[in-house]
Design a protein around this nucleic acid. Structure first.
Lengths: 196, 196
DNA sequence: AGTGCGATGTTAACGCCGTTAACTTATCGC
DNA sequence: GCGATAAGTTAACGGCGTTAACATCGCACT
């Protein structure tokens, strides 16, 4: 229990928390190490004792987001297959809608490179694995067509929920859409097909 | 035909071109007005005679991207409906794959706000209209189910191609995927359904 | 109890950025 | 020619990420 003077003991976590608040409120572009330091009553270089650079801090936030997402997906009941698949999709879009700026950071592409921050890559793969596992189970249970390879089915599902998440987040679908409902409807559409 | 001294006559277009090259090569984050001015042999404030700020320049690039995309979608043969729908999807993903950084700028969300740069909004709507129109035609021709509203079908199609584009661009689907082929396969999957 | 050392801060500085104000020069219509 | 205006310049402000060099705190060991 340190006195909050020189060593105030918890700078790393406080920095993460504050940065996360800024992220949620104003987006990753608004996260500035100098502003962060100011807000924490510390000089800018102090943060470099805990994060090798700004990008690493962002990567930690994104990895945390992936862990949250993974947890949310794990809460979806695994049976019956159809409900599990649609439930995963709804949970996915729901997460993105609840944490839009975090989601954009996680999947931004331009801002965080792959293959550099290993814990970020791992956390991302873990989230993906839940989706893939659900699809495998559904196919093994005979619910999905087996004339298409699993990676293709997975790509379709992921593309649909990922695209829907971003379109919702960015307001491209108009203001009054209800993401959870729409996710369920589009999930059903993918399962049943749009042609007649 | 100005001597390239004080007024070199074409700064605005040259700036757009150079910025576009930087965008394609290194992403929007690497576009710096100062570096741009340096590269064009001009002082930084000169650019402000032609662009009210950095964001406006980026918006012009993004709007140009939307116009390119719209043109590409218009080249897809409109018949028969199934081929038109899949063709639109393939062309869409193909564009994103060819101009990843431009596509990210167009749909980045965090970087360019809606409702601020009207020409950008217009260009975006025009691209969307092509997709929606194709779906309307297919439904009117009796090819698509009519127990779902058009906006829902449109959202499904758009979400799929948008999501697939970004997943490809960001390398989330592995290195050896072929975007055009995958787009055609997933398009068929959405039309025919994944359940059996 | 003293001491040395590593962890954790600080100060000062570098070079980059976007942007603005005030000024200068070129070009074009009359 | 000349005057308005378009298109450049110089100089400056404040913010940013990051680094090097230095200072201080607190714990582990003698």
């Amino acid at each position: 229990m340190p006195r909050d003077q020189y060593h105030h003991g918890d700078l790393a976590q406080q920095a993460r928390d504050t940065a996360r608040a800024v992220l949620d409120g104003h987006g990753d572009a608004s996260i500035s190490l100098r502003a962060l330091a100011r807000q924490l009553g510390v000089t800018p270089p102090a943060l470099y004792r805990h994060f090798s650079d700004r990008e690493t801090l962002l990567a930690e936030l994104a990895a945390d987001g992936f862990r949250q997402l993974t947890a949310a997906l794990h809460e979806v009941p695994p049976e019956p297959p159809r409900d599990a698949l649609i439930g995963i999709g709804v949970a996915y879009v729901h997460f993105a809608h609840q944490h839009p700026n975090c989601y954009r950071l996680m999947f931004g592409g331009g801002v965080l490179p792959r293959g550099v921050h290993s814990q970020l890559d791992d956390a991302g793969r873990a989230a993906f694995a839940v989706l893939e596992h659900t699809i495998c189970r559904a196919r093994d249970a005979g619910y999905l067509r087996n004339d298409h390879p699993v990676p293709q089915l997975t790509a379709a599902a992921w593309a649909l929920v990922h695209g829907l998440s971003l379109l919702c987040i960015d307001g491209h679908l108009g203001p009054q859409v209800m993401p959870d409902l729409l996710a369920a409807q589009l999930g059903a559409l993918l399962l049943d097909g749009t042609a007649r």
